[in-house]
Amino acid sequence: MTEVLRVEDLRVYYHTEAGPVKAVDGVTFALKPGERFGLVGESGSGKSTIALALLRLIRPPGRIEGGAIYLDGINLLSLDEEEMRRLRLARISLVAQGAMNSLNPVKRIKEQIGLALRDHGVQMSRAEFDRYVAGLLQRVGLRPEVATMFPHELSGGMKQRVCIAIAISLEPQVIVADEPTSALDVVVQWQVIDTLRRVQEELGAAVILIGHDMGLMAQTVDRIGVMYAGKLVEIAPTRELFREPLHPYTQLLIASLPSLDGKGELRGIPGLPPSLLSPPPGCPFHPRCPFVMDRCRVEESILREVRPGHWVACHLH
C-alpha cells in the first residue's frame, strides 16, 4: 500500500435557498505515508470544506454529495457515525482554523488533553497520565508546567502548540492542519510550523496543510494542490510548481507574490473568483484567463497528468 489517504471525486455542496453552492466539486488526490501535501487557494475556493469533509465534520446546510475518502483502504464515507468517531483523532486528526481560540477557557490544558483520550477509551493511572501529558507537551516544545495552566495564560503560539499536541495525542496517520498559523506573527509562525514538521516526521504521519500563503507552502510541503472555485486545477511537487507552473491561474498567483529579491511591479489577478452558485460553464477560470480559447468557455477541463507527478486541468496542456 503506497497511499495512506485517497480522495476520489469528492463533492460537497451547501444547500442554500438560492440553490446548491458547489464548494467542493469533484476533487481527487492521494497522499503517501509521511508526505506533506499543501492545499492552496483563495477564500471561497473550497479548501477548508475539504478539511472538514475529510473528518466528516460537514454540518447542514452542507452535505457530502458524492465521492469517496479512503483512509488506509477504508472508505470513510461508508462508515456509521460511531465508527467514524473512533477513527477521528486516532487515525486522522484536525487542527482546525482558529483552533487555538476553541480551547475551553475554564479547563486546564491537561484536562483538555485528557478529555480527548478518555473519549477514545484510553485507560491510564494518574501518574501515567501526567507523564504522558508532559511527554506530549515536550514533543511540541512546551514546558511541563503548561499542563496545569489555563488557555488565557498562554500566548497564541503556545495555544496553537497545545492544539497540535491534542491532534497528535493518539498518533494519527494523517494530520489535517487548516491555516494553523494565520493569526500568528511571522516569528511565531515559523516556530509553530517547525514544531508541526518535527512531530509529523517523528510520527511518520502524513500532513495536509491548508492555506493561502504560497510562501508558507513553498517552505513547508513536498507537493502542492492548487484549488480554484471548488476544483483542483493543478497538482505538482513544490519545486516543480514554482519553477514551472502550468495552469494560468497558478502562474498569475505566483507572479502576484511580492518578493525580497528586488522591487517588481505589483500585479494582481484581474477580475474576481466566480460565484459557486452559478459557476461559469467550461473552465471556471476562463473569465479571468489571459489565454482563454473558445473551447474553454464550453468544455470543462479535466485534471490530467501531463508529466510524471504533475497534474493540470487546462485545455492548453
Binding site: 516569528v187 515559523w190 517547525d194 517552505q219 514554482f242 525580497l260
Partner: peptide, 19 residues
Amino acid sequence: RLLVGSIPLPNPDRVWQGE
C-alpha cells in the same frame, strides 16, 4: 534579522531559517 529570516519566501530554493 530575525523578522527577515522568519518570512517564508515563495521560493523553495531559499532556506526558511526562523529563530
